[in-house]
Amino acid sequence: MSSFGPIVLRTERLVLRPPEERDAPDCFAAVDQVVRRWMPWAHGYTLERARQWCVKEAYRDPRRETSFVIVPDRTGRAGGVIGINRADWETGVAETGYWIGPADRRHGYVTEAVREVARYAFGLGLHRLELFAATGNIASQRVAERAGFTREGVLRKARPVPGGRSDMVLFSLLKGEL
Rank of each mutant, 00 (worst) to 15 (best):
D88I: 11
V34E: 13
Y45M: 11
E21Y: 00
F68M: 05
I84D: 01
D26E: 14
I82L: 14
P18D: 04
D32G: 10
R77A: 14
K56A: 15
T91S: 15
Q33S: 15
W89M: 08
R106T: 11
E20G: 07
R64C: 08
V71T: 13
Q52N: 14
P62H: 05
V71A: 02
T46F: 04
R49T: 09
E20A: 09
F68L: 09
V55A: 13
W89L: 06
F68I: 01
G44D: 10
R63N: 12
G101V: 02
W41S: 09
E90L: 13
P40S: 08
T46V: 10
G80L: 10
R105P: 00
A42L: 07
V93M: 08
F68W: 15
R86S: 15
D26H: 15
V34T: 15
I70A: 12
G79L: 13
W99L: 08
E57S: 14
G83V: 13
A50Y: 10
E95Y: 14
Y98K: 00
D88T: 03
G92V: 13
G97M: 08
S67N: 15
P62D: 03
V34Q: 11
R105F: 07
V81C: 13
R36W: 01
E57M: 15
P18Q: 10
T75Y: 06
A42Y: 05
G76S: 08
G92C: 12
A50W: 10
Q52V: 07
F68E: 01
G76T: 11
D73Y: 11
E21I: 03
F68A: 04
W41E: 13
D104M: 11
E48L: 08
D88K: 03
E65G: 10
G80R: 09
G101S: 03
P62V: 03
W53A: 08
D104N: 11
C27R: 15
A87C: 12
T96D: 08
A30C: 05
D88N: 15
Q33P: 00
W38A: 05
N85T: 10
G97N: 06
D104E: 15
S67A: 11
R36N: 01
R51A: 11
A42I: 04
I70R: 11
N85A: 07
R64N: 10
P62K: 02
D23Q: 09
I84S: 10
S67P: 01
Q52W: 05
W41T: 07
L47G: 04
G83P: 12
G101L: 03
F28I: 04
L47K: 02
E48N: 03
C54W: 01
V71G: 06
C54S: 11
V55F: 03
W89H: 12
P72M: 12
G92S: 12
T96Y: 07
W41L: 05
I82V: 15
A42V: 04
I100N: 00
D32V: 05
R36I: 01
V34D: 14
R64K: 14
R49M: 14
V81L: 14
L47Y: 00
E57F: 00
A42N: 06
P72L: 03
D61H: 12
I84R: 04
T96E: 08
D23M: 10
E65P: 00
A29D: 13
R49V: 02
Y98V: 02
A87F: 05
W53H: 08
A94M: 09
